[in-house]
């Protein structure tokens, strides 16, 4: 399996990280959801973004995918991201597996996957990636003609990740892939995420389930109330009981 084989040329980074965020602010009306978040993700890395409910994890991802507007520095592949809209960001190789498994319920599994490839629509690349996704999630292969809404929660999450992969992204953003899913399926999904990461894909993973997130990632950032609280290697953070007690809600 070779999931990190974008149709597009690998972006030229000029020595910058693939994704670099500096002092990112996002407002929802009068509420400041992000108060200066900074982080970076190097090409080929898997980085986790953890924190308690409302810490701004999902908002950070939405800002990167350009689904919310933001201020501060947001650079992707050595270029400014803030001037792009969501469609353009997707076409530039940023692929989001949205929170709450936002699949297209009345479309079939196959149609959902093919929509993921909307940006390149290269038939042979599409078939190839589809085969990779099916190898990763055999359950999807069995349900190609079913409509998305007939899938179980875990299967819908697989579909959401599969759809994100279909774009052959350079940067994969995953928003709470374990949310509301049975522990057994969570395990399956995180095994798949590890497989994707091993193939060389750059992943930024948002999770409330700190234990699985830290074990799946190499580095992690801890957010608290819209600000950076801690960062470090996932292994170290996982060992520190005080971190979990103080920032991650137990």
């Amino acid at each position: 399996m070779n999931l990190a084989h974008p149709t597009r040329k690998q972006p030229d980074l000029h020595g910058e990280p693939l994704l670099a965020i500096e002092n990112l602010h996002v407002h929802y009306g009068g509420i400041e959801a992000l108060k200066g978040v900074s982080l970076h993700v190097d090409a080929g890395e898997i980085v986790a973004l953890v924190g308690a409910n409302g810490a701004g994890k999902s908002t950070t991802l939405k800002a990167i995918a350009r689904l919310v507007s933001s201020s501060g520095t947001l650079r992707y592949a050595a270029r400014d991201l803030t001037s792009l809209n969501a469609e353009a960001a997707a076409l530039a190789g940023i692929s989001l597996g949205p929170e709450g498994r936002a699949i297209f319920p009345t479309l079939t599994v196959r149609e959902n996957l093919e929509l993921g490839a909307y940006g390149h629509r290269d038939a042979s690349a599409m078939k190839e990636t589809e085969a990779d996704v099916v190898a990763l999630f055999p359950r999807l292969g069995e349900r190609m003609q079913q409509s998305g809404q007939t899938l179980s929660g875990g299967e819908q999450q697989m579909l959401a990740i599969g759809r994100a992969l279909m774009a052959r992204p350079s940067l994969l953003l995953l928003d709470e892939p374990s949310l509301g899913i049975a522990p057994k399926l969570t395990e399956l999904i995180f095994e798949a995420i590890s497989t994707i990461a091993k193939s060389g894909m750059t992943i930024l993973l948002v999770e409330q389930n700190t234990r699985v997130a830290l074990s799946a990632s190499a580095r992690a950032y801890v957010l608290r109330a819209g600000e950076n609280a801690l960062e470090g290697s996932s292994e170290d953070l996982a060992k520190r009981d005080d971190v979990r007690a103080a920032y991650l809600g137990g």
């Binding site: 995918a65 689904l67 809209n85 969501a86 469609e87 997707a90 076409l91 692929s95 989001l96 949205p98 936002a102 699949i103 297209f104 319920p105 009345t106 479309l107 149609e111 093919e114 929509l115 993921g116 909307y118 940006g119 629509r121 759809r163 774009a167």
Partner: peptide, 24 residues
């Protein structure tokens, strides 16, 4: 067609459609 899929996707979830690169 790809276009047909994209407008049906838009009907279901505009944000998710934009996130896969559909220009609403």
């Amino acid at each position: 067609s790809g276009w047909g899929r994209s407008i049906r996707a838009l009907r279901e979830d505009e944000i998710a459609a934009a996130a896969v690169g559909v220009d609403p």
